[in-house]
């Protein structure tokens, strides 16, 4: 089963409110990934986002669920800058996995 979140309805046209990111993460993303289901974040109409916002949105599921999160998280209609920021967060989280395992 795949759930879709229309972000524009929640955050407007720019992602910077980390409180909203946390709410989406805790209310929708984590429970869906934990169940083994897929979730699509629809960025249609989102012009941009801060790295802090994207981190607050997706870092926890990626850190906690690793492959399960990578396989089940989808991003729809991201513009170039949002795609770049999501890619940045993916890269540095994976860079840090070894250290997290040690801890």
């Amino acid at each position: 089963m795949r759930k879709t979140i229309i972000l524009q309805n929640i955050i407007g046209d720019f992602g910077e409110n980390k409180d909203l990111a946390r709410t989406i993460r805790q209310k929708d993303i984590i429970p869906t990934i934990a169940q083994g289901d897929s979730i699509a974040l629809d960025f249609t109409g989102i012009n941009g986002a801060t790295q802090s916002f994207i981190h607050a949105l997706i870092a926890e599921p990626i850190i906690r669920y690793r492959e399960q999160a990578f396989e089940n998280l989808f991003y729809i209609n991201t513009n170039d800058s949002v795609s770049e920021i999501i890619s940045i967060v993916y890269r540095y989280l994976q860079e840090s996995f070894t250290e997290m395992e040690e801890n």
């Binding site: 790295q51 981190h55 607050a56 967060v89 540095y92 997290m100």
Partner: peptide
């Protein structure tokens, strides 16, 4: 921790 917490990465 490298990579930060669930909320912060130290990049801003």
């Amino acid at each position: 921790k490298e990579g930060g917490t669930f909320e912060n990465a130290g990049a801003g």
